Amino acid sequence: MNEAEIREALWQELGNIAPEMDLRQLDPSANLREALDIDSMDFLNFVTAIHRRLGVDIPELDYPKLGTLDGAVNYLKVKLRR
């Protein structure tokens, strides 16, 4: 899976959580919880959706690495190479 495909998957899953947001305008370095005004349960739902969709195990200690769009893309690129 390439970077564009990962980013598209993230946008789609974030769109399920924050459908009112224009995710294409999201600053990729912005904190997702703040930029999308989502709470910790929404963020957990996002992480769970990514796990299910991409089949990537994401330990709780790694959740902060998914805090921005760029961070999530970089994290998942590494995990999907294995």
Rank of each mutant, 00 (worst) to 15 (best):
M1H: 11
M1G: 13
A4W: 01
R7K: 15
R7T: 08
R7F: 02
E8F: 00
L10P: 12
L10E: 07
L10C: 10
W11H: 14
W11R: 10
W11C: 01
W11I: 01
E13A: 06
E13D: 12
E13T: 02
G15W: 02
I17T: 01
I17R: 01
A18H: 04
P19E: 05
P19T: 07
E20C: 00
E20N: 02
E20P: 00
D22P: 01
L23H: 05
R24Q: 14
R24I: 05
Q25R: 08
Q25A: 12
Q25D: 13
L26P: 02
D27R: 01
D27Y: 00
D27P: 05
P28Q: 03
P28L: 02
S29K: 11
S29G: 09
S29H: 09
S29W: 01
A30L: 05
A30C: 07
N31D: 15
N31I: 01
R33E: 14
E34L: 09
E34P: 05
L36T: 10
D37L: 07
I38K: 10
I38E: 11
I38S: 08
D39Q: 10
D39G: 13
S40C: 07
S40G: 04
M41C: 03
M41V: 13
F43L: 02
L44F: 03
N45C: 04
N45R: 03
I50R: 11
I50S: 12
I50P: 11
H51M: 13
H51G: 09
H51P: 06
R52M: 09
R52E: 15
L54G: 13
L54R: 13
V56E: 09
V56R: 08
V56P: 11
V56H: 11
D57L: 12
I58S: 14
I58V: 15
I58T: 14
D62C: 12
Y63T: 10
Y63G: 08
K65W: 05
K65G: 10
L66P: 05
G67R: 04
T68N: 12
L69R: 06
D70E: 14
D70I: 02
D70R: 03
A72V: 07
A72H: 09
V73H: 07
V73W: 05
V73L: 04
V73K: 04
V73S: 11
L76R: 12
L76I: 03
K77G: 06
V78R: 06
L80N: 13
L80R: 08
R82G: 14
R82L: 07
